[in-house]
Structures are given as C-alpha cells and as structure tokens.
C-alpha cells in the first residue's frame, strides 16, 4: 500500500494543480461576492494538503499494511478497450450492430466459450434493450428509427 499511496499522493497533487490552474480561467463576473472560482480554489487547496498528508504518511511508513489483493489488470484493460471502442464506434455503425458485438466480445474476454449462449445473450440483450429503451421509452438510439 505504501507505494500505491506514494503514487496516489503525487497524482492527487497533480489533480489539485491542474484544477487550480483551470480555476484561473473562470470569468469573475460581478454577480456575487465570493465569485465562481472561490470554492474551487478552496477545494484545490484542501486536496493538495490531504495529498501531502498521504505522502508524508507513506514516506513515514505509517500507511495501512494490507496490500490490495491480486488483480487481473490485463483482463480489465481488455474489457476497457472494448468499451472505449464501443463508445467510439456505436454512433457510427448504429446501436443494433455495435451492441451485440460488444456483448459477445465481453463474454469471450471473460472466458465464455460456448457459441450458442454467447450468440443468444448478445442478440437477446440487445433486442431487449432496444425494445424497452428504444421503442417503449422513445430513447433516440443511434441508427434506429425513433418512436413516433
């Protein structure tokens, strides 16, 4: 956990810095006394202090002892890549084409190897989602006719 806390502390300091930097570009306006940048700067300061506390604690070796459990990070990255690909491509190829592919790919990635259940899930879940959201609730899913 110590190394994780060190990394997190650095990262959070960076977040606080970027956030503070962005707050410099907020138009002030004359509408109220504190202004739209006051609370953000307060938050950036508080985050920086807490991140420093985290770092000091980690350097001093007082971090929590329990390490996080083993993670299958590789698998998560694969699923994440699939999701990002889906978010990029779905508006272009349409909901009804992209969704079954995503569902099947996620199932494959998670180690399912039976073709029939994969196909049925991919098509069935897509159809159910389209029926409920697209038709019944009138959500304008990309590449599908809306509800009239």
């Amino acid at each position: 956990m110590r190394r994780a806390d060190l990394v997190a502390g650095m990262l959070l300091l960076a977040v606080a810095a970027v956030y503070f930097h962005q707050s410099l570009f907020i138009a002030r306006g004359f509408a109220d006394r504190l202004g739209p940048a006051f609370v953000p700067r307060l938050l950036a300061g508080a985050l920086a202090v807490l991140a420093l506390a985290l770092l000091v604690r980690a350097v001093g070796g007082r971090s929590e002892a329990t390490p996080p459990p083993e993670a299958r990070t590789g698998l998560l990255v694969v699923v994440l890549a699939l999701l990002v690909g889906y978010a990029l491509l779905m508006p272009k190829v349409g909901f009804l084409w992209a969704t079954p592919v995503l569902l099947a790919a996620v199932l494959l990635a998670l180690g399912v190897r039976e073709p029939l259940p994969i196909a049925l899930t991919a098509v069935g879940v897509t159809a159910a989602l389209y029926g409920v959201f697209g038709r019944l609730l009138g959500v304008l899913l990309p590449g599908t006719p809306g509800r009239l």
Binding site: L102, L107, L110, V125, T126
Partner: peptide
C-alpha cells in the same frame, strides 16, 4: 452465470 450477468449489466448501464 456471472460473465453473462456482467455483460448484460454493462449493456444496460451503457444504454441507461
């Protein structure tokens, strides 16, 4: 089975 549940929930929350 869990993989089926997870992928279906993923589909559900993305549409949601």
């Amino acid at each position: 089975r869990r993989p089926f549940l997870l992928s279906a929930i993923l589909g559900l929350v993305l549409v949601g």
